[in-house]
Structures are given as structure tokens and as C-alpha cells.
Amino acid sequence: MFAHPFMQHAFLAGTAVALAAGLVGYFLVLRAQVFTADALSHVAFTGALAALAAGLDARVGLFAMTILIALGMGGLSRRARPDDVVIGGVFAWVLGLGVFFLTLYTTTRSGSGNGSASVTVLFGSIFGLSGSRAAVTAAIAVAITAALLTIARPLLFASIDEDVAAAAGVPVRLLGYGFLVLVGGTAAEATQVVGALLILGLLAAPAGAAARLTTRPLPGLALSAAIAVASVWIGLTASYLIPRMPPSFAILAVATLTYLATIAASRLPRHPTSKARTSHQDAPARAPA
């Protein structure tokens, strides 16, 4: 399998992106900001098409657009934690712009009116990466990983208890912005590998599974990255063995099944305690009535 250069490139880029996505995703789940990542991945789509329509390299548009919008969404909200409605509004409009650029691109640039450019951007083309692109992708992913690990400790504090962290002198707002930039970078980065629409799976599923398996943050962070990398490896191998299966599907199927398995596993034995917890929760709510 590794005799083919395209498989080597796919593994190199895929591993690096999965590492970054697993780490960033864990914080997203912890901060309940998965929707932000969803929005930013769609922004990546618009950015890529805007750059293509302007005749630039798609990557310029990807990074510029995601990071700008990430900062913009942070600016519109309290403590750089975008609100549900702000995200939804911005993101619906950005998608509409994406369609606009798609029309512009297909009618002015590519000549033929087919949507293959948009499909590549939306669903990724991991087997189509050249050697140099794979290397650049890997380098950026490693940079994102390093940046995230540098701010991991204060970010963790700020994510778990924002008010206490702010009181302790942690720059909560700045961290929020920094984190949004990293999310934007990851979304832009991963768009080339699994596609704008599917990156969400690599961000959410491994992190969700890790959060179910352990409540301790640092092992959880490591576990999330490990599950993401393993999903990419297994997915790539599977789609190499079964040529009709798109690699993006294989990768996400592995990640989703892992998450489902952890939910099932943690549900069965703990059923009585979880019931006890809900009734405990009901108690204060019933008291005033």
C-alpha cells in the first residue's frame, strides 16, 4: 500500500490534520463550541471558491476567510464566545456567498458548467494531494498543534470555569480569540484533506468519544488526538482496499462508530446511576411547585 506515492502523501497529511483536529476538537467539545467549527468549515468552502473565482490559489482564500470570520464572530459576542444566533446568521449568509462565488467560478473560469470544483472543496480529495502540498499541509497542522499545546493549560482553565479564570488573571478574551483563530486554521487546513463539510466529524466525534472515556482533561486530550489519527489510518486503509468507498466516508465512519461504541459502553453499566442523577436533578426543580 505504501508503495504508491499518493498513499504516502495521504497518510502524511491525514495524520497531521487528524492530530490537530483531535486536539482542537477536544476543546471545542469542552467549550460547547462545535457549532462554531461547523460554521467555520462552511466559511472555508466560501473562501476556497472566492479565491478560485478571483484566480488565486484556493489555500489563500481558505485561510484568509476562515481566520477573518472567526475573529469577526468573536468580536460580535461576549468574551469571544460566539452566540448561537450570531453564528447561525453569519454562517447562513456566508453559505449564500459561497453559492455566488460558485456561480461566478463555473461561469467565468472553468468554462464547463459542472460543479466538480465545489464537490472537491466540499468533500475533499485526500488521494489527490501532491507531495509538496502534503508537506505544507503537515507543516501547518504541526504548527497549529504546537500553538494549541502552548496555550492548552490556561485555555483549559478558561474553558472549565471562565469566571474563576478571569478572576485569577487569565486573559480569557484573548484566549477565546486565539482559540477561534486556531479553529479557523484547522478548518481551512482540513478542508483539503476531508473536505469542508466533513471536517466537523473529525472535530466532534473523537473528542466526544474521549470525553466519554475519561473526565481527566489531559488524558482526554491525548485520547482525542489518538482516536482521530487512528480513524484516519483505518479509514484510509479501508478505502484503499475497497476502491468504491470514498476515503472521507471511510474516515468518518470509523470516527462515528468509535463514538457510538463509547456511548453504548458507558450507558449499559451506568444506567442505575444515571437514573439516580436525573431524579436528583429533578428534585430542586420540583421544590418550588
Binding site: Q33, G201, A204, G208, L252, T256
Partner: peptide, 16 residues
């Protein structure tokens, strides 16, 4: 938090 992870996974898997 858990729900947002679940929804995100459902969405990505559906698209895949």
C-alpha cells in the same frame, strides 16, 4: 457539551 458533539457527529456522518 455532550449534545453538541453528538449533533456534530450526526451531521458529518450524514454528509459522508
Amino acid at each position: 457539551t455532550e449534545q453538541s458533539a453528538v449533533i456534530g457527529t450526526v451531521q458529518a456522518f450524514a454528509l459522508a
